[in-house]
Simulated scan of single mutants.
Amino acid sequence: MRVCILYSGGKDSNLALLKAWKEMEVVCLVSLSPKSEESVLFHYPNTELVKLQAKSLKIPLIMKACSDDEVGSLNALREALKEAKELYGVEGVVTGAIRSTYQATRFQRICDDLELWCFNPLWLRDEVSILREALELGFEIVFTRIAGYPLSKDMLGRKITIETVEMLENMKRFVNPAGEGGEYETLVLNMPLFTKRLKIVDYEIVGSEYDATLIVKKAELVET
């Protein structure tokens, strides 16, 4: 089956991509670029970096700007998926959704309207096991946004390690360990399908102690 990946550049969409790659024909990536961190549906920080990730993956990219509200976001997604269907003969859509029925039901509705199969390979997986699997597979992941106590801005730019996973597991009372509720967002610098590693050259951190974003000002692809 020819599929596209709903791709944010973070850990979940990259893990979903890797799983789909083993069983399907991945023909393109679809990325949405919202206006701010207030986006109700899509990953916000550093969305322009998916262009470098797509180049490293050697997979065509369809990217659409969208507003932060639900209607504008879904309209942009619909247009992007229509384009993927027309240009690449896409028959299905793969997402990195884990537990958000809010996201999943809306994505499913659009796929149904466009007669596309929707596949969520991480759906209802234990969040800690997802993090551990990504690390075991060699993913290099950094935090790009935190949104809520006890996560703090000194985590931004730091790599996720086994120790980080254990810390997030111990914070279950306060945050979803996978950041599914928007508690944090990530950027993948390297994973098994990348032909080159993404390197952050320059960045700044904006925001408050418990609500902050790492803005990448310059990045490049380097040999792994």
Rank of each mutant, 00 (worst) to 15 (best):
K35Y: 12
E204D: 15
L77N: 01
A212N: 01
E166W: 03
L114C: 09
I215D: 03
K85M: 02
N170G: 14
K85R: 04
R109Y: 11
M1D: 14
T224A: 12
E185V: 11
V128Y: 15
Q103Y: 03
G182N: 07
H43C: 08
V40T: 14
E204I: 14
A84G: 08
S73V: 08
E220N: 06
A54S: 13
E169R: 12
E86Y: 09
L131W: 14
P192Y: 07
W117Y: 14
D202C: 10
A134W: 00
Q103L: 04
E86C: 11
E37P: 03
Y7Q: 07
S208A: 15
K35A: 09
G96H: 11
E223S: 15
E37W: 03
V216R: 09
S33T: 06
E133R: 06
S39A: 11
I98M: 06
K35H: 10
L15N: 10
D12I: 06
G148N: 09
L151Y: 07
E48C: 02
T144A: 09
D154H: 01
L18A: 00
G207D: 10
I146R: 00
L74V: 02
M167E: 13
G72T: 04
A134N: 05
E115K: 10
R78P: 11
K35M: 09
R2G: 06
L116K: 08
R109M: 13
A80W: 10
S36E: 01
G148H: 01
V93R: 01
L15M: 10
N75S: 12
L116W: 10
Y210N: 11
E166P: 04
K172F: 14
Y210P: 09
K22P: 10
G138R: 08
S36M: 07
K218M: 15
S8H: 12
N120A: 03
I98P: 00
W117G: 05
T101E: 15
